[in-house]
Design a protein around this nucleic acid. Structure first.
Lengths: 134, 134
DNA sequence: GTACTATTGATAACGAATCTCATTACCGTT
DNA sequence: AACGGTAATGAGATTCGTTATCAATAGTAC
C-alpha cells in the first residue's frame, strides 16, 4: 500500500526537540530560537514556532501561557498528564501530580453539564532560592 | 489634610463597569469596547483597557487568559476568591468553589519551598447547550 | 537519479495590548 | 459660580508575539 508520507524527519525538528529537552524550565519560542542561533544553528524562527506547535499537539511538549500572555513550552514525558509549579522569577519548574485535582475538574464539569473539560491548573510562585534573594 | 485626589469618577469608568456587569460571561477588552460603541457610547479603546485593568487590580473584576492568549474579564463579587468553569464556545461561565484546590495549591507549593503561590485554576469545556448542538 | 511534495525561512501581515501627548473635564478650593 | 491643578481621555503610533505567504529547498518513494 506504499505508506503515504505524512511527516518528514528534518534536522530542524530534531534541533528543536533537543534544545527543548536540554532546558529544564519553560521557554518561549523566541527564547529557544535565540539559544539555537547562538549555538550556531541557522534555523528560522517560523520553523521553531511550527516545531513547537507540533510537539505540543503530539504530546511531546507541554505548553502554557505565562501570566503575561506568552506561550511557553517544555519537554515532557509523553502520555502523562501533569501540572506545574513554576517560579515566576527564574522559571524553575517542578512537575506535580494532581490526581485529586483531575478528578475534581472532571466532576465539577459534569456537575454543571459541561463536556470535554480541558482544565488549566498551574501554580506560579517564587522558588526557595528566589524567595531568599529578596 | 485635604485628602489628595486619587481617583476620579468618569462616565467612562461607569460605562465599563456597567457593561461588564451586564454580561454574564468573560469578555475581552475589545469585545466590551465594541459593545459600548454599538450602544452609542463614544468611549475609546485605550480607556476600556485601562478601566478593565483598574477594575481587576481593585478586585472588582476577575481576569484570565483564554487558551488563545487573550485577556478576558468578568465582573465578580469583591473579596471572594473563586475559579471558573467556562464554555469555550459560547462563553457561559459558572463560578465554582474550590476550597480543596486552594489548600492543595498552598501545600504543594510549600512542599517544594515555593512562596507566594498564585495559582491558575480554570476549567474550559462545552456547556450543556453547546454540547447538544453538535 | 527522478519526481513528488512536505518543509523551510525571510519577510510581510496580523492582532492584542501599551504608549504618547495634546486635549478634556473632574473636583477641591476660593 | 468661576478657577486651577491634574487625573483621565482618546486617536493614533508603537511594540511585540505569533501566523501567513510563497519561492526555494530537501526528504522520501519509486
Amino acid at each position: 500500500m506504499t505508506n503515504p508520507t505524512r511527516k518528514r524527519n528534518t534536522w530542524q525538528r530534531e534541533a528543536v526537540r533537543g534544545a527543548l529537552g536540554a532546558d529544564d524550565g519553560f521557554v518561549s519560542a523566541q527564547g529557544l530560537h535565540s539559544v539555537l542561533r547562538e549555538s550556531g544553528s541557522p534555523i528560522g524562527l517560523a520553523t521553531v514556532y511550527r516545531a513547537l506547535a507540533d510537539l505540543a499537539t503530539e504530546g511531546e511538549a507541554d505548553s502554557l501561557q505565562s501570566p503575561e500572555g506568552e506561550s511557553l513550552y517544555r519537554a515532557c514525558t509523553p502520555g502523562q498528564h501533569h501540572h506545574h509549579l513554576i517560579c515566576r522569577n527564574c522559571g524553575l519548574t517542578v512537575e506535580i501530580e494532581a490526581d485529586a485535582v483531575e478528578r475534581w475538574a472532571q466532576s465539577v464539569a459534569a456537575e454543571h453539564g459541561f463536556t470535554q473539560p480541558n482544565h488549566v491548573v498551574d501554580v506560579f510562585g517564587l522558588c526557595a532560592a528566589c524567595s531568599q534573594a529578596r
